[in-house]
Simulated scan of single mutants.
Amino acid sequence: MIKEVIVVEGKDDTAAIKRAVEADTIETNGSAIGEAVLRRIELANKRRGIIIFTDPDHAGERIRKIVARHAPGCKHAFLPQEQAYNKGDIGIENASPDAIRKALAELRTETDDVAGEVTWDDLMQAGLIVHPDAARRRLEAGKRLGIGYANGKQFYKRCTSFRITKQEFLDALTGLDEGG
């Protein structure tokens, strides 16, 4: 049984989580998260901790940001888009139990201490920003780091808030130029 409560978007996500692990969930019911749901999330975070596990799409990112603002110190699980894709639909509900277990095994915890080792210049030198292929490179680096896809500014924020070390960053970059 996972100690923390997993915050997901809907009932289908809850069903997918329960096929993979034994855990309690809170459903946001989409991006229009009500005050009652936010209060339950805050209480769960204080008592047991929470894991935010939203779809790897724009709406999922929006929900992740809203929930994280109300739950300081929460954990984040990320699933690559290709593991959540089925017939034109992207969502946690499409992921295999193994993919869900792997994402939950590679949790990241956000911190307010932004004294991380990765700098904006590091992203620029790595071709993750201001580069013709920056989006693809961030997608692959985000998978390797377990922080998901994000635009340049958000990618940098994740590197610092999840305390990605310089060595983790450099390891994730290995082979990017070979298309790997």
Rank of each mutant, 00 (worst) to 15 (best):
D98A: 14
R48S: 08
N94Q: 09
N151I: 12
R101K: 15
R62A: 11
A103K: 09
K65L: 13
Y149Q: 03
K143Q: 10
P72E: 12
C74E: 01
G127C: 11
I52A: 01
H58P: 00
I90P: 00
N86H: 13
C74Q: 02
I63V: 15
P56K: 03
N94G: 02
H76Y: 12
G142I: 07
R48C: 07
T119C: 08
R144S: 03
K157D: 01
M124C: 01
V67R: 11
D113G: 02
G152K: 14
A126T: 06
K75P: 00
E61F: 07
G148M: 07
Q125M: 07
H131P: 04
T109S: 08
R158F: 14
L104F: 11
Y85V: 05
D122R: 13
R101L: 08
N151K: 15
D89K: 13
H131C: 04
V114Y: 06
P72C: 13
D113I: 07
P56D: 01
E61C: 02
D113P: 01
T109H: 01
L79F: 10
I90W: 08
Y156I: 11
I63A: 07
D122P: 10
A141M: 14
G91C: 09
R144Y: 07
D98Y: 03
A103E: 03
Y85P: 00
F78V: 09
G88A: 04
V118K: 12
G60L: 05
A134Q: 09
R137S: 08
A105I: 05
I51W: 03
H76E: 04
D113A: 10
E110R: 15
E140I: 15
S96L: 03
L107W: 12
D89I: 09
G148L: 06
A95C: 11
G88K: 06
K65D: 05
G142W: 00
H131M: 04
I63M: 10
G73T: 04
Q83I: 00
V130R: 15
K143F: 02
H70G: 01
A105L: 13
H76T: 07
K87Q: 09
P80Y: 12
K87A: 11
E106G: 15
K102M: 11
F53A: 15
I51D: 00
H70K: 12
I92C: 09
Q81T: 12
P72D: 05
K87G: 03
A105W: 03
P132M: 05
G152L: 11
T160W: 05
H58N: 07
L128Y: 14
E93V: 01
A141H: 11
W120A: 15
S96M: 01
E61M: 09
D113N: 11
E106C: 14
I147Y: 02
N94M: 06
A99K: 05
I90M: 04
E82H: 15
L145N: 04
L79H: 06
G73Y: 03
E110G: 13
R62C: 05
A103R: 08
